[in-house]
Amino acid sequence: MTQWTVHGTRRIYESEWMSVDLDDVEIPDGERFEHHVLRLPYPSTAVVVVEKDDVLLMWRHRFTTDVWGWEIPAGRCEAGESAATAAVRETEEETGYRVRVEPLVTMNPLNGLSSHTTHMFVGTDAVKTGEPDPAEAARVEWVPLGDIPALIRKGLVPCGITLAALTTYLTLRTTGSGPPSGPRQEG
């Protein structure tokens, strides 16, 4: 097996939200160079909230891409908080619904550039506890799961984490398979 070797790291930016490093790496053929790496101090969570044949989605604008689209509730874990607890908290804060969560899949959304991990869950037994945070979404709606493929084809689900979570959920639901295991470690 071949893998890259990290000889050192030089931090070039740091905040409470992220750091950017230049890692001194060597690839299997012996070439050595600096590679940019984005590191986030805490993992994030995302939740596919389902009720019967509907999924809870938020219609929101992202200034970074200047795009509107449907997203699932998501956010970062706080210090000392489990991913499941963060998933429940983020869902309630963003949508006004409290849910029970079960693991769906864990992924590294930008594994060529970032060490960041996102834990995705399926949320069920949704109970309305309040109003959604207006800073998070223009509206929150229950959308039929059968409409998701058309929304994706129309480009109305531009968020990569939302795409990954919804397509994983729909694939596993359709095939009757259980949730996949976490990232595979070679060694």
Rank of each mutant, 00 (worst) to 15 (best):
residue 51 E to P: 00
residue 53 D to L: 00
residue 56 L to N: 03
residue 56 L to R: 04
residue 58 M to G: 15
residue 60 R to P: 01
residue 61 H to Q: 05
residue 62 R to F: 13
residue 62 R to V: 12
residue 62 R to S: 09
residue 63 F to A: 14
residue 63 F to W: 12
residue 63 F to S: 14
residue 64 T to C: 04
residue 64 T to D: 15
residue 65 T to M: 03
residue 66 D to F: 07
residue 67 V to P: 00
residue 67 V to I: 10
residue 69 G to V: 05
residue 70 W to F: 13
residue 70 W to S: 02
residue 72 I to F: 03
residue 72 I to D: 01
residue 73 P to L: 04
residue 73 P to Q: 06
residue 75 G to H: 09
residue 75 G to N: 08
residue 75 G to Q: 10
residue 76 R to F: 11
residue 76 R to D: 14
residue 77 C to F: 01
residue 77 C to A: 07
residue 78 E to P: 01
residue 81 E to W: 09
residue 81 E to T: 06
residue 82 S to L: 02
residue 84 A to C: 07
residue 84 A to Y: 06
residue 85 T to W: 02
residue 86 A to C: 10
residue 87 A to I: 08
residue 87 A to K: 04
residue 88 V to P: 05
residue 89 R to D: 07
residue 90 E to T: 08
residue 90 E to R: 15
residue 90 E to A: 10
residue 90 E to C: 09
residue 90 E to P: 01
residue 90 E to V: 14
residue 92 E to I: 03
residue 92 E to G: 09
residue 93 E to G: 10
residue 93 E to K: 14
residue 94 E to Q: 15
residue 95 T to V: 10
residue 99 V to K: 02
residue 99 V to L: 03
residue 99 V to A: 07
residue 99 V to R: 03
residue 100 R to H: 14
residue 101 V to K: 12
residue 101 V to E: 04
residue 101 V to H: 07
residue 102 E to G: 02
residue 102 E to A: 15
residue 103 P to R: 12
residue 103 P to G: 09
residue 108 N to K: 07
residue 110 L to E: 09
residue 111 N to C: 02
residue 112 G to N: 08
residue 112 G to D: 09
residue 116 H to E: 11
residue 119 H to Q: 09
residue 119 H to D: 12
residue 119 H to R: 09
residue 120 M to K: 02
residue 121 F to T: 01
residue 121 F to R: 08
residue 121 F to K: 06
residue 122 V to I: 13
residue 122 V to L: 06
residue 122 V to Q: 06
residue 122 V to Y: 12
residue 124 T to P: 01
residue 125 D to S: 12
residue 126 A to P: 13
residue 126 A to W: 09
residue 126 A to V: 04
residue 127 V to A: 12
residue 128 K to R: 15
residue 128 K to D: 03
residue 130 G to E: 10
residue 130 G to K: 08
residue 130 G to L: 04
residue 130 G to Y: 07
residue 130 G to W: 10
residue 131 E to L: 05
residue 131 E to A: 14
residue 131 E to M: 09
residue 133 D to A: 11
residue 134 P to H: 10
residue 134 P to C: 13
residue 134 P to S: 13
residue 135 A to M: 11
residue 136 E to M: 14
residue 137 A to V: 04
residue 138 A to I: 00
residue 138 A to E: 15
residue 139 R to F: 08
residue 139 R to C: 11
residue 140 V to Y: 06
residue 143 V to K: 02
residue 145 L to V: 01
residue 146 G to S: 15
residue 148 I to F: 05
residue 149 P to K: 01
residue 149 P to R: 00
residue 150 A to S: 12
